[in-house]
Simulated scan of single mutants.
Amino acid sequence: MKKSLRQFLGAVAAIILIGGIWWLGSFTLQKPLLPTPTVVLARIPNLFAEGMFQHLQASFYRVIVGIFLSILGGFGLGLVMGSFPKWNQFFDPLIYLTYPIPKMALLPIVMLLGGLGDGSKITMIVLIVLPQVTISVRDAVREIPHHYYDVYRGLKATRWQQFSAITFPATLPAMFSSTRISLGTAISILFFTENYGTEFGMGYFIMDAWTRMDYPAMYGGILILSSFGFFLFLLMDFLSWYFFKWQRK
């Protein structure tokens, strides 16, 4: 059986299992706060007719911009730290001292300094993702065998040729892996931050439905947000498969 078919069947089995547990819980509880999956799924088309695309668009923009800035900054900083020991001695303690700080504790400061708009929400995502990308890229640069560069130096290759042929391809998988790992956390942070200073976003929609006790809409929003995160994860997997041809086997 091909790997893609096995993955598809595994996904179907997981969906059936989760749906079965959900239906069993709804049947056992018999309360409006846990509607059946069929009730929630039947409500989803109405949610899109009522403006769900605006909420998805707002969340998509914040996540994509936050991840892009994190990759851009983390990749550059990781390259510098991995290639130049003196710079690593400067940034290493800074990252290790600040990374364990709970990022949600910084939310009031970020909102005070950056306002209640998209900037503060994007900043929170960057605070989560950037350190992980930086550390992964730095470690990937350190693990490149030195004799690879010796061969290219023997061929009179320039530093840019060495970077494009050795360093860049060797660090890209680490960057994508750390981004995939951070993606779920980034969406969780986004959900929390979208409860402040905005009228659009999946976090705002879900919490608004909860306060109005519109439970089918609330669960529908959760399903849509989960599908949104799943789509981004699959997109990262596809990009990894497309660009890293040497890893396909």
Score class of each variant (00 low, 15 high):
Asp118Val: 00
Gly115Lys: 14
Thr211Cys: 13
Val141Gly: 07
Ser188Arg: 03
Ile15Gln: 06
Leu56Ile: 10
Leu130Trp: 04
Phe168Tyr: 12
Gly220Met: 07
Phe228Ile: 09
Val40Arg: 12
Phe91Pro: 08
Ile18Cys: 10
Gly229Gln: 06
Thr185Cys: 12
Leu34Ala: 05
Leu183Thr: 03
Ile206Cys: 03
Leu47Glu: 11
Leu77Gly: 06
Trp87Pro: 12
Val40Met: 11
Trp87His: 13
Ile44Phe: 01
Ile95Leu: 07
Thr28Ile: 04
Leu41Pro: 10
Ile67Arg: 04
Ile187Gln: 08
Asn88Glu: 15
Ala209Val: 03
Pro102Gly: 11
Phe163Asn: 15
Ile189Val: 09
Thr158Trp: 06
Met52Ile: 12
Gly114Pro: 09
Arg212Gln: 15
Phe90Pro: 05
Tyr152Ile: 10
Ala11Asn: 11
Gly25Phe: 03
Pro37Leu: 07
Thr123Leu: 14
Gly221Thr: 09
Ser120Pro: 04
Leu223Phe: 14
Thr158Asn: 11
Phe192Pro: 02
Gln7Met: 02
Leu225Pro: 02
Gly203Ala: 11
Val12Gln: 04
Ser182Gln: 07
Val12Asn: 00
Ser70Thr: 01
Gly19Cys: 02
Val40Trp: 14
Val137Asp: 06
Leu234Trp: 07
Ala58Gly: 03
Arg153Ser: 07
Phe48Lys: 15
Tyr215Met: 15
Tyr148Arg: 04
Val151Met: 09
Leu79Val: 10
Val65Met: 05
Gln30Lys: 03
Phe244Ser: 01
Phe53Trp: 13
Gln132Ile: 07
Ser83Lys: 14
Gly82Tyr: 13
Phe48Met: 15
Val65Gln: 14
Val12Met: 05
Arg248Trp: 11
Phe68Lys: 05
Ala165Arg: 15
Ile44Thr: 03
Phe8Arg: 02
Met175Val: 00
Leu239Asn: 01
Pro32Thr: 10
Val129Tyr: 05
Gly82Thr: 08
Asp118Ala: 00
Gln57Asp: 06
Ala217Lys: 08
Met202Leu: 15
Arg159Glu: 15
Met207Arg: 07
Glu199His: 11
Ser226Gly: 08
Val40Thr: 10
Arg62Leu: 01
Glu199Lys: 05
Tyr96Ile: 01
Leu232Gln: 06
Leu130Glu: 01
Trp210Pro: 00
Asp237Ala: 06
Leu34Trp: 09
Gly76Lys: 11
Arg153Leu: 03
Met124Pro: 02
Ala49Ser: 04
Asp139Ala: 14
Gly10Arg: 03
Ala217Ser: 14
Gly117Lys: 02
Glu50Tyr: 06
Met236Asn: 04
Leu107Asp: 04
Pro37Val: 01
Leu77Tyr: 10
Met175Trp: 10
Leu56Gln: 07
Gly51Thr: 04
Tyr61Asp: 15
Ile16Arg: 00
Leu172Gln: 09
Glu194His: 10
Ala209Cys: 07
Ile222Leu: 08
Ser83Glu: 08
Leu235Asp: 05
Pro100Trp: 15
Pro145Glu: 12
Ser164Trp: 03
Phe230Gln: 13
